[in-house]
Computed example of a mutant assay.
Amino acid sequence: MARTRAFLFAALATPAALLAAPVVAQASLTMLDTLTHGGWEVRSRDGGSVRKICVRTGRELIQLRHPDSTCNRFVVENSANETTVQYTCRGNGYGRTHIRKESDTLVQIDSQGIAGGKPFQFTAEARRTGGCD
């Protein structure tokens, strides 16, 4: 009976521990935390317009198609040189963004999802240009 209770407790506790782990892991985005803060230009690979943004935390690069939305984020990959984040913006779509760091002032971005009811997919290069305007 005691062995059965111990097994049952372990079986129930393990999923709870696994569910709690991602919340802790999402607090720090290793690569984004190392980017140089300031003004950045994001250039789409398809020759589209250049977008200027102010990078204060690096997280501004995650939701380029949902910049003003409050979204739930789930960190898929978090390493020294790459970050992948999947996010859902309730009532406003979702996205998945992969950012690869070349230096503290240059990153490559791949993102796809739904914004404004329409699908999007883009690749871009983001480069620090100076201070925020």
Rank of each mutant, 00 (worst) to 15 (best):
N92L: 09
R59K: 08
Y87Q: 02
D33E: 13
A20F: 06
E102L: 13
R3V: 11
G38W: 11
R43W: 06
H98P: 06
M31R: 04
V107C: 11
P22K: 00
H37A: 15
G117P: 03
F74H: 10
D46T: 10
H66F: 03
T30I: 01
R45S: 15
S28A: 07
T14Y: 09
A25Y: 01
R96Q: 11
R65Y: 15
A2I: 06
F122E: 14
G117S: 02
A21V: 08
R127T: 09
G93P: 04
G58F: 03
N72R: 11
S44F: 15
M1Y: 14
V23D: 00
L18F: 07
P67D: 12
C89A: 08
R3Q: 03
G116V: 05
L8R: 07
G93D: 02
A20K: 03
G113C: 14
H98L: 06
A124N: 08
L106Q: 14
L106F: 14
D133C: 01
D68Y: 11
G117F: 07
K101D: 05
R100P: 00
A17K: 08
A16F: 11
R65Q: 15
Y94M: 07
D133Y: 07
R96V: 11
V85F: 02
T70I: 09
S44E: 13
G58E: 08
V55S: 13
I99D: 02
D133H: 08
R45V: 12
E125A: 09
P119I: 15
L8H: 07
N81L: 05
S49W: 11
L19I: 01
S111T: 14
L106H: 14
R43T: 10
F122T: 07
A80Y: 00
Q121N: 12
N81A: 07
T57G: 09
A6V: 03
V50P: 11
T97A: 04
N92K: 09
T14N: 08
V42N: 11
R65N: 13
R96D: 07
A115T: 10
K101H: 07
S111A: 14
E82G: 00
Y87H: 05
I99K: 00
F7G: 07
Q121G: 08
R96A: 05
Q26G: 03
Q26Y: 03
T70Y: 12
L19D: 01
L18M: 09
L64F: 04
E82P: 02
S69L: 08
Q86I: 06
I53F: 11
L12C: 03
H98N: 10
T4L: 10
S79T: 01
D33H: 12
N81V: 04
V55R: 06
F7A: 14
G130A: 12
M31P: 02
L35N: 05
M1C: 14
G91R: 09
G93I: 01
Q121E: 15
S69H: 06
T84K: 01
V76F: 05
R127N: 03
T129A: 05
R90W: 12
S49Y: 12
R59L: 05
I109H: 09
P22T: 01
I99C: 00
L35V: 04
G113L: 11
A6I: 03
N78M: 03
T123H: 15
V23M: 01
F120S: 10
R100V: 04
C71T: 01
V85D: 02
A16P: 03
Q108Y: 13
F120L: 10
G93E: 02
